[in-house]
Design a protein around this nucleic acid. Structure first.
Lengths: 216, 216
DNA sequence: CCTAGTTTTTGAACATGTTCAAAACGACGA
DNA sequence: TCGTCGTTTTGAACATGTTCAAAAACTAGG
């Protein structure tokens, strides 16, 4: 009970090291020794290295929300508001660009707690899904009603894909990712009126239902 | 020179084990001992465990082509032809469903030879991109000309995303993936006429250009 | 048939994530 | 103060991917 301190010490050391050295170079042994603690002790508090990354993951999403909410207040156009959420999210990831590969590897396994769709990631996931919900809710012109329920979740998935692109983007300053986002939003804006035609609306709704099964 | 046999023995043993036991359970030591060879010897022929998976990867894509080409000959509608390529591809992956996670993990790292976008994966990649090129070329009604160059590559990426969905799909028999594909093709079919309107064509072309940067 | 050089093969070693039995510690009732 | 029980901490151990120096097998050239 007392030594909640130890847990926090390990957590803090690990998160600093993740930021400064990346996932691979941050070794459980280095975390332990930098914390002045034995290797086994780190495992007493965190069952897995991935569980330590989870803490980082949550911290990043919280920073995302802190950055997005004020910026959202200043935008009223739908695609503009979505752009805010996407862009502030990418901004949080920027420091990790060099180590993206290592983190990505730990995140894709279906049974990893780090998988964005895992139950363990639910708190972090809810933050971002919530941001997209807010972005939609506060927009001047709303979406067709039948999309509103599924859309935040689908946008979150789109955000994950954008992050995937970002992690592979080798253009200087990840300019390509920025442009992909801009062009994607432009396409959405142009396509928005067409979504009201029944021809597109029906298959699109079914598509959203299926996509929604991920991380439900 | 002579002992090309050894290389083949190791390769064969490894591929069989990958199919039967999956990626994680197939250990470099088990490959070596089942081949009646020392651990170090396996590394003499394959610099990395991932390089062994690469052999499997290529074999799977070749089977994909072998399954797709005859089926393509019987279809003339564009979306139908695309469906053939998608479906025959998924069929090759079915045996690996239980181990998808392990393979996926090895594939996402940007610097892994197993990454579908890596230069090492080029031969396997070209097979599938080529299938999509054929599917487009033989269709009754063609796409707008300006899309033709980028489209096969973009479809290959869409195929990768479908595989990603498939690997997370926990529905019995991966029915959800089947339906996602069906609905996606239905949406494409419905949207196809709209792609000729300049309002959509311009941002879509720019999007395709950016997407094309992956694995180029 | 010997020797020198090249190709193959081996086995030990290392780093890392993870597990676990045992030791150290700490609080608390007798 | 002592002993006991639960919590914390430790260090050794294991499996795995990978590296490497040295041994073995092989191939020519004389």
């Amino acid at each position: 009970m007392k030594s909640e301190q130890t847990r926090d010490l390990i957590r803090t050391t690990a998160l600093r090291s993740f930021r400064e050295q990346g996932f691979d170079a941050t070794t459980m042994r280095s975390i332990a020794s930098q914390s002045g603690v034995s290797l086994g002790n780190a495992y007493y508090y965190f069952p897995t290295k991935n569980h330590l990354v989870q803490e980082l993951y949550l911290e990043v999403q919280q920073a995302h929300r802190a950055a997005a909410e004020p910026a959202l207040a200043a935008a009223s156009d739908l695609t503009e508001r979505l752009g805010v959420v996407f862009r502030t999210g990418l901004a949080q990831l920027a420091p990790f660009r060099d180590y993206a590969s290592g983190f990505l590897t730990a995140m894709v396994a279906a049974d990893s707690p780090l998988n964005p769709m895992s139950p363990e990631s639910a708190p972090a996931r809810e933050i971002v899904v919530g941001l997209f919900r807010d972005a939609l809710a506060g927009a001047r012109r709303a979406l067709p009603v039948e999309f509103e329920a599924r859309m935040p979740h689908a946008l979150w998935l789109a955000y994950l894909l954008l992050c995937l692109y970002w992690s592979y983007d080798r253009s200087p300053g990840q300019r390509s990712t920025q442009r992909l986002l801009d062009q994607g939003l432009a396409l959405l804006k142009a396509a928005l009126p067409l979504l009201r035609t029944p021809v597109l609306r029906a298959p699109l709704r079914r598509l959203l239902d299926l996509v929604g099964e991920l991380g439900a």
